[in-house]
Design a protein around this nucleic acid. Sequence first.
DNA 1: GGCCCGCTGTTATGTTGTATCATTTGCTTA
DNA 2: TAAGCAAATGATACAACATAACAGCGGGCC
Lengths: 165, 165
Amino acid sequence: MLYHLLMTNRTNAAHKAHDHEACIDTALARARALCDDRGVQLTPIREKVLAIVWKSHKPVGAYEVLDELARTHKAARPPTVYRALDFLIGEGLIHKIESLNAYLGCGEAGVPHTSQFLICRDCGTAEEIVDPALDKALDAAARRARFTVERKVIEIAGLCARCAH
Amino acid sequence: MLYHLLMTNRTNAAHKAHDHEACIDTALARARALCDDRGVQLTPIREKVLAIVWKSHKPVGAYEVLDELARTHKAARPPTVYRALDFLIGEGLIHKIESLNAYLGCGEAGVPHTSQFLICRDCGTAEEIVDPALDKALDAAARRARFTVERKVIEIAGLCARCAH
DNA sequence: GGCCCGCTGTTATGTTGTATCATTTGCTTA
DNA sequence: TAAGCAAATGATACAACATAACAGCGGGCC
């Protein structure tokens, strides 16, 4: 079941012209399943925030999430959003894009991985890629420096294939 | 001359217990030489900001720079600092550490390179490393995605060799 | 002199993120 | 059932990071 969801999502993410409704639904279903497995609460607010982040494949700012959330949840304030984002990051359901101070749905939720991001400055989309060779090279470099890795931020900015034409 | 400076600095940067006064002096001398070559102005404000960033091997926040700068330059305001930082980044004399919203002197100024950063969460120091293999792996990953790279952010957080003991 | 250009001064504001304490909710346990 | 507890949310205030916009100044150039 989880495997199926993963593959479905992966396929969608790989193509820009995809059924994004299905993309969101898949991500939410997977999130629900994961949280259920782990015994943590994907509360309505958290689920709504996750859905907002998944509205597109562009990283979304926290205050943009707040604006969206406030449409259905008048009491929403910055801490409401940041708590939900922190939870979602902690559960590996979204990533923070440090170079944009923005947040992006994780296309590999539930699968241990290190992501890299390709961020198009033209259309704003960010593609999450998982390249084990790159990850290994990074570990090797850290090891040479006797550095204990806890977190990796790899963000490549430029032009996506579509926008480079 | 430039080569000598580079090597001197590199040696210093590689050891934590180094003569940091010399480290700063070297960086400033190199910066002056580079700006002179390029016909751009390393004004007193810019040079002071560069010196402040080089005060340690820890990334420094813009407002920390501002506080320091204001000690000798009462008129300093946020734009003063951000303009200087932008200039220094543009000339490749400092780097911005995206995951910390902070700035770090570039140990390889004047040499075309892509840096990676090893940032210790314990002591706060950031080591700049240049690993061509890692860089190549990154380019290869981007190429596979038909992505045109313009900027790379590679920041590894964890524990440095000293702090991991 | 008159012009332009690069740099800095100055005021105000925009954007991103946290601290802190109060309240609610649902579960446990006596 | 009531007391107690933990997790989540509400609410207010503020801290930290960054930029917009316009004014003034000084040096080089015709």
